[in-house]
Amino acid sequence: MPAKPPRILVIAGSDSSGGAGIQADLKTITMLGGYGMTAITAITAQNTLGVTMVEALSPQLVAAQIDACLSDIGADAVKIGMLGSAALGHLVADRLEGLSCPVVFDPVMIATSGAVLADPETVAAFERLMALATLTTPNVPELAALGGPAGMAARRVAYLAKGGDAAGDVLEDRLVIPGQADRVWHAARIHTRHTHGTGCTLASAVATFLASGLALAEAVERARVFVRAALLAAPGFGAGHGPLGHQAVGDIPGD
């Protein structure tokens, strides 16, 4: 009998165009050999040009989705993406406190298009989620909104500072784990406008690798390789920030 795939619960919003959100999460998890489940927090109307409408689902419905997944199938890791409201942030924290599996938190505040996806009250709710997460994955503007490296150091949480939004042809990703030396990766920028969903993809890849038993630094390293391959395999859809090519790459955990 084949080994069961690692179970990853994604708590995030839906992207109608399929490039980011739970659509990118499920593509990533599937390509990496995991079993993806979702608790949808919000419905967005968006495409490669931007977000035109966001409607959060009720906290009761989000809670019911989380409970349905955890009470029956269970989870080996949880990935948190767009929440959409402070109430949902606190609800998710309530549901995940005491959970023993790894949690990867992508603090979605600003989409690739520049649309703001979290208000100040929601950002305040992020404090609880960062405290319980195994890893938080802010991009450059999100890290700045969270107080920069000094702010994260004061929280004493593990985080991956993603450098894709920084200027220059050589990008830096920095994994910071309290009490350990930083792990730093440098890579040449892949010049492409097809970057929609990179943050979702990276966080879900890390969660899948953690669910498979990899250590945090190795999970991040392999997730970075997957994202770069997906960037290179982008199908070229849309007139703006197009989606990645998840379907064109695969790397089964443990190979």
Rank of each mutant, 00 (worst) to 15 (best):
L202I: 05
I73N: 07
D173V: 09
L61K: 13
A161I: 11
S204K: 07
I177C: 12
T112K: 12
A77S: 00
G240S: 04
L202P: 04
I40K: 13
I66Q: 04
Q247P: 03
Q23P: 07
R183N: 14
L143C: 06
E142Y: 03
A167I: 12
T48Q: 05
T30V: 12
G74C: 06
L210H: 03
T38C: 11
R174V: 08
L143E: 00
P138V: 03
A24H: 01
L171Q: 11
G213R: 07
A144I: 07
V54K: 12
Q180P: 07
L26D: 07
M130P: 03
M1S: 14
A181N: 06
T52Y: 06
V176G: 05
G163N: 14
S100K: 15
R156P: 00
L210G: 05
V92G: 00
I66W: 05
A24R: 03
N47C: 10
A124H: 09
A188K: 11
V249Y: 07
A42V: 15
L129M: 13
S58P: 11
V103G: 00
T192S: 15
H246W: 01
S204I: 01
L146K: 04
A131M: 01
K4Q: 15
L117E: 11
D182V: 07
R156A: 14
M31L: 15
A234G: 00
V184W: 09
S113M: 11
A111V: 08
A64E: 12
I22S: 10
V92F: 00
L70K: 08
A161W: 02
M37R: 02
G164S: 08
L146T: 15
Q180D: 12
A118I: 13
L143Q: 06
S85K: 12
T192Y: 00
I177W: 05
A145N: 01
A111I: 04
D165N: 07
Q46T: 08
L26F: 09
G21S: 05
I190L: 14
T198W: 02
V176E: 09
G242D: 12
A86G: 00
K162T: 10
A42M: 15
H246C: 15
A20Y: 07
V108K: 03
E218V: 05
S113C: 07
R222C: 09
R183H: 10
G250R: 14
L26E: 03
C200R: 02
A86V: 11
P102F: 04
A56R: 14
G89I: 04
L202N: 01
F209C: 04
V184S: 01
G254D: 04
A124T: 14
R183Q: 03
A239D: 14
L61W: 14
A167T: 12
Y35Q: 11
A150Q: 12
F126D: 01
A211G: 15
S113Q: 06
G98L: 04
L143K: 01
G250N: 13
S212I: 10
E221H: 13
D76W: 01
V123E: 08
L231N: 10
E221D: 14
A229C: 10
V170D: 10
H90G: 09
G36L: 14
L171G: 03
T41I: 02
A158I: 03
T38N: 08
L202T: 03
Y159C: 01
I29H: 04
P138I: 02
A68K: 03
